[in-house]
């Protein structure tokens, strides 16, 4: 399977966990890694090129930090422009039908913040609903999101663990080794569950 990672992060400092994840992902063979903020620093997205990339791949991964319960602005712009009528949806559309989509997100909030009694009053997958419905409308196969909570105060070990797991997840998708049936039973999954979700 050909994997496309669309990465959106407007402030890629060295300390950022997403930057480390991106560096690991960029090095993988058979995975096309796109840094959207680097390619379109002025938000003028090349729609034809983006559509071509989507067509050339089977798995579409969105990697981003959660900003105000949503995607960073450029990724929203990407959706608005690239998922055109006649391409992604509509009678002549559905060109993306059957492709798998996966959101790989990091949140500032902790796991308990994202619970019915937590400060955010909902679990994180609820905030991904627009993305889920967008994928569904386009006939894509939406997988439960891969989440890292409390991204701003991780201890070193869990940070390293997540940074290692991310490329493992991507290669598993590439080699079709992820047990999708089991993944679909979960609301979200994280690096600690990843080992159990692999087929051998």
């Amino acid at each position: 399977m050909r994997v496309l990672v669309l990465f959106a992060h407007p402030a890629q400092r060295k300390s950022s966990i997403n930057t480390a994840m991106a560096t690991a992902a960029r090095a993988l063979k058979g995975v096309t890694f796109v840094d959207l903020y680097a390619e379109y620093p002025r938000f003028s997205i090349d729609v034809d090129r983006e559509q071509r990339r989507l067509m050339e791949n089977d798995v579409i991964v969105f990697q981003f930090p959660v900003f105000w319960y949503s995607t960073p602005a450029l990724l929203k712009q990407w959706q608005d422009l690239v998922l055109e009528y006649g391409f992604a949806y509509g009678p002549q559309g559905k060109k993306l039908g059957g492709k798998q989509t996966l959101a790989c997100v990091t949140t500032g909030g902790s796991k308990s913040d994202y619970s019915d009694n937590g400060g955010n009053r909902r679990a994180v997958e609820h905030f991904m609903y627009p993305l889920e419905q967008t994928a569904t409308l386009c006939g894509m196969d939406y997988l439960p999101p891969f989440v890292l909570y409390s991204a701003n105060h991780l201890d070193d070990e869990s940070a390293q663990h997540h940074i290692r797991s991310y490329p493992q997840l991507l290669t598993a998708l590439r080699d079709d080794r992820l047990d999708l049936a089991r993944v679909r039973t979960l609301p979200t999954f994280g690096s600690s569950e990843l080992n159990d979700l692999m087929r051998n």
Partner: peptide, 23 residues
């Protein structure tokens, strides 16, 4: 340059736990 793009200080996003921001 950093304004509006910086990650919040560690912990600040936990604030919603009902302490800081009024929900």
């Amino acid at each position: 340059v950093a304004r509006g793009w910086n990650a919040p200080d560690a912990g600040s996003i936990h604030v919603p736990k009902s302490a800081g921001i009024d929900l």
